[in-house]
């Protein structure tokens, strides 16, 4: 295939995914806001009225910051995993770079993530936190999460063509990770011996970093600032290399 600029195709695929998701629903894109808000409400109720932890301020903002980071990760990874299998018709009939499919799926989820980030920032401002120049770090932090999930989706979508079990592995992993990412607990509550390990999990690292920036108005720990890019980028590179190896036989296995 002759090299060509695939930006337009990628943009079209992202727009298609984004539009399909909420087409024909009366609330449309508001579901992107409603979903995390409802979960935020429930978790806030459980953890301030029932469990009553000692004095966490603005628990709802704390929970929401964890929730949106996690829900992007989990939805994007799961739909990215299915993107090759689900678009078998395209794989078999249209010559195009196959890696565009998982990447466009993840990016379409990224648009919803963007809306939810807006919601988080709005609620943070309402709760009295101030926007500082540190907030300029946020696009970088969230961008690294998108890169990380792209890498994961490249790996899992390619493997899913050969072993359909992969989608269930992904589904179970996200369920497990819901508890292992500091969503409704804070990083400070994690015993010190596990903290280093947590920082290697890019999702936990993103939660930690964005809480540090928005809620505590401080620069995230330096150890985290190098671990997050290193882990995210190596996943992307490894994912791309693996995908390139496996894509040759996609059409024969679908």
């Amino acid at each position: 295939m002759r090299p060509r600029n695939y930006g337009f195709l990628l943009a079209c695929l992202v727009a298609r995914d984004f539009k399909i998701r909420y087409r024909n629903m009366s609330l449309g894109v508001f579901w992107s806001l409603l979903n995390p808000l409802v979960l935020m409400g429930v978790l806030t109720f459980v953890f301030t009225k029932i469990f009553r932890p000692a004095g966490v301020e603005n628990f709802h903002v704390v929970v929401l910051s964890g929730l949106i980071v996690f829900s992007f990760f989990s939805l994007a990874w799961q739909s990215g995993t299915m993107s090759i299998y689900g678009n078998a018709a395209l794989i078999k009939r249209v010559p195009m770079p196959r890696e565009l499919l998982p990447i466009s799926t993840v990016l379409a989820n990224g648009l919803h993530f963007l809306i939810q980030i807006g919601l988080l920032l709005a609620l943070a401002l309402l709760a009295g936190y101030r926007a500082t120049s540190l907030w300029l770090l946020l696009p970088l932090i969230f961008g690294l999460e998108v890169i990380f999930v792209c890498g994961l989706a490249l790996i899992s979508s390619a493997l899913d063509v050969y072993f359909r079990d992969v989608r269930y592995v992904v589904e179970s992993s996200t369920t497990v990770l819901f508890w292992l990412v500091p969503i409704f607990y804070s990083f400070a509550m994690i015993p010190p011996e596990y903290r280093d390990l947590y920082q290697y999990n890019p999702v936990a690292a993103v939660v930690l970093a964005c809480r540090a920036i928005i809620l505590e108005n401080r620069v995230p720990p330096t150890s985290l600032l190098w671990k997050l890019p290193v882990v995210s980028l190596s996943f992307l590179v490894f994912g791309y290399l693996l995908f390139r190896r496996l894509r040759r036989n996609f059409a024969d296995y679908l």
């Binding site: 337009f8 298609r16 399909i20 024909n24 678009n87 018709a89 249209v94 195009m96």
Partner: peptide, 24 residues
Amino acid sequence: SGFHPDLTGAENLRVNAALCGLTR
């Protein structure tokens, strides 16, 4: 291939054209 029933003809046309290799 790649047509989606819930999208309009114009939206499907765009995606399909991009898949067929047309530039913006």
